[in-house]
């Protein structure tokens, strides 16, 4: 086990109250595994990944839980110690390849800086490694392009450079926060393919944060669905897409217009919208939008429970009520 997150809680203290952006989230990632976290805006998926990296800023902060990376608790480390791990053992690529690179530095300088802060090698070796990495991520004539400034490259190229930079220290874990959202479909296909190849090559684990279920289906081994800061469902990709259980997951899957769908019928829609984080409905946070909401759902929050490796947070699958359900 590479990373184990236990009961992570991240809170933002605002004037009008405290928002629990990540609420009691636990999961694990194994070596070489691609784990996807899906959710809509406000689900806490990005805050989860930033918490792992220790990048949450005031007025927010990790309020509880453990983040065990190779059995070392990251929440207990100082910023300085975290810096040793960040960009080295764990690295990250972001949604916006346009703004994630410093516009006044050459590509090679940015990658070399990252390499040289984490590896004790000479400038010459760092440059060689930079070119090698650019080549690995599929940038044509890497030795020349290394001298480019970010604005001379297209969005897809910049995302490749970001990936090269993230991979330059051979991380054990790569956090990819919406890596393809800002890119066009044909470029998105290229980047997903690249992530796949890199996983094979370096045997690293990938935590893929995205809102796009299509991307999840194509790329991930295991999926976590988040809603309002909580994990509502977790399963391997095949199980989740073939037998989704939580009404939210079911709704999400049905509401996506598919290109292989021939009907002109109305799309299924989840009614309402994500609740204000300061005014959560009592009980299950999805209860106000759920088609299968029961009385109990408006009163208590269901626990995340596991049935044959498939975790769901919903009273429909409560063990106590299971007999009743299958009887229906």
């Amino acid at each position: 086990m590479l990373l184990e997150v236990k009961n992570l809680r991240t809170e933002f203290k605002l004037k009008r109250g405290t928002v629990r952006a990540v609420d009691d989230v636990s999961f694990t990632i194994d070596k070489g595994e691609i784990l996807a976290i899906v959710g809509e805006s406000g689900s806490g998926k990005s805050v989860t990944s930033l918490s792992l990296m220790g990048l949450i800023q005031k007025p927010g902060g990790v309020a509880g839980g453990e983040i065990l990376f190779k059995s070392q608790d990251l929440t207990k480390l100082s910023q300085k110690e975290l810096q040793q791990i960040r960009g080295n053992k764990i690295s990250m690529i972001f949604q916006e390849p346009m703004t994630s690179l410093n516009p006044v530095w050459r590509i090679k300088d940015q990658i070399m800086e990252n390499i040289m802060t984490h590896m004790k090698i000479s400038k010459k070796e760092a440059l060689a490694r930079t070119v090698e990495m650019l080549d690995t991520v599929g940038i044509p004539s890497p030795a020349e392009r290394a001298n480019d400034y970010p604005h001379q490259m297209s969005g897809g190229m910049r995302q490749r450079v970001m990936t090269a930079m993230a991979l330059s220290c051979e991380p054990d874990l790569l956090i990819a926060d919406e890596p393809t959202t800002a890119l066009d479909v044909t470029i998105q296909a290229q980047i997903l393919e690249l992530l796949y190849q890199m996983r094979e090559k370096f045997n690293m684990a990938v935590l893929l944060i995205t809102h796009d279920l299509g991307v999840v289906y194509e790329a991930a081994d295991r999926v976590i669905v988040m809603y309002c800061g909580k994990i509502v469902e977790e399963a391997d990709v095949k199980t989740l897409f073939e037998h989704p259980q939580h009404p939210y997951t079911v709704g999400l899957l049905q509401s996506i217009p598919q290109i292989d769908n021939e009907s002109d019928e109305h799309l299924y829609m989840i009614k309402g919208m994500v609740p204000n984080p300061l005014h959560m409905p009592p009980g299950c946070s999805f209860s106000d939008r759920c088609d299968r909401c029961m009385e109990r759902c408006t009163k208590e929050m269901p626990e995340l429970q596991e049935i044959n490796g498939h975790k769901v947070r919903c009273f429909l699958y409560d063990k106590a009520e299971e007999g009743e359900l299958s009887a229906k």
């Binding site: 805006s41 809102h211 279920l213 829609m269």
Partner: peptide, 8 residues
């Protein structure tokens, strides 16, 4: 827009 809102 978010996926669930897109359908709406």
């Amino acid at each position: 827009l978010d996926v669930s809102i897109q359908a709406q």
